[in-house]
Simulated scan of single mutants.
Amino acid sequence: MRQLLAILLTPFALASLVGLVVLFPTGDAPAVSSSGLTPVDGTVTAAQAGPCSEGDVGGTDCLTLTVQLTEGAAAGSDIRTTVPLEPSTPRFAVGDDVVLAYNGGEPLSGQSYQVVDFQRGFPLVLLAAVFAMAVIALARWKGLSALAALGVSIGVLVVFVLPAIVRGENPLLVGITAAGVIMFAVLYLTHGFSARTSTAVLGTMVSLALIGALSALFSAFAALTGLDEETATLVGVLGREVDTRGLLLAGIVIGALGVLDDVTVTQTSAVWELRAANPSLGWRELYAAGVRIGRDHVASAVNTLVMAYAGAALPLLLYSSVSGVGAGAILGSQDIAQEIVRTLVGSIGLVAAVPVTTALAALVAVREVSPATPRTG
Rank of each mutant, 00 (worst) to 15 (best):
M1A: 14
R2H: 11
L4E: 08
L5V: 12
A6R: 08
L8I: 14
A15F: 08
P25C: 02
A29G: 12
S35C: 03
T38L: 10
T38F: 00
V40K: 09
D41A: 14
G42E: 13
G42Q: 12
T45K: 11
T45G: 13
Q48T: 15
G50K: 04
G59K: 09
T64Y: 04
L65H: 07
Q68G: 01
G72Y: 04
A74M: 06
D78V: 00
P90D: 05
R91D: 14
A93D: 15
V94A: 13
G95R: 06
V98R: 11
V98W: 05
V98Q: 07
V115Q: 11
V115W: 04
P123T: 14
V125S: 07
L127P: 01
A128Y: 09
V130F: 14
I136S: 10
A139F: 14
R140S: 06
S145K: 15
S153Y: 01
G155C: 08
V156H: 05
L157H: 03
F160G: 02
V166A: 10
L172I: 10
V174S: 03
V174D: 04
G175N: 00
V186H: 10
V186T: 15
L187C: 10
T190L: 02
F193N: 09
A195H: 00
G203K: 02
T204N: 06
M205N: 00
V206Q: 03
V206A: 15
I211A: 02
A213W: 10
A216M: 07
A220T: 12
L224E: 02
T225I: 07
G226C: 13
G226A: 07
E229M: 07
L234G: 08
G236K: 03
L238R: 09
L238G: 09
L238S: 04
L238C: 09
T244H: 11
R245G: 08
R245L: 14
L247E: 02
A250G: 12
I252C: 01
G258I: 14
D261G: 10
V263K: 06
T266E: 05
A276F: 00
P279Y: 11
A288M: 05
R295T: 14
H297C: 06
V298T: 15
V298M: 02
S300T: 12
A301D: 03
V306H: 03
P315A: 09
Y319T: 15
S321L: 15
G326V: 10
E339G: 14
V341Q: 06
V341M: 01
T343M: 15
G346K: 11
S347C: 11
I348S: 04
A353T: 12
V356K: 04
T357V: 09
A359T: 07
A359H: 00
E368Y: 03
S370G: 09
P371E: 09
T376R: 15
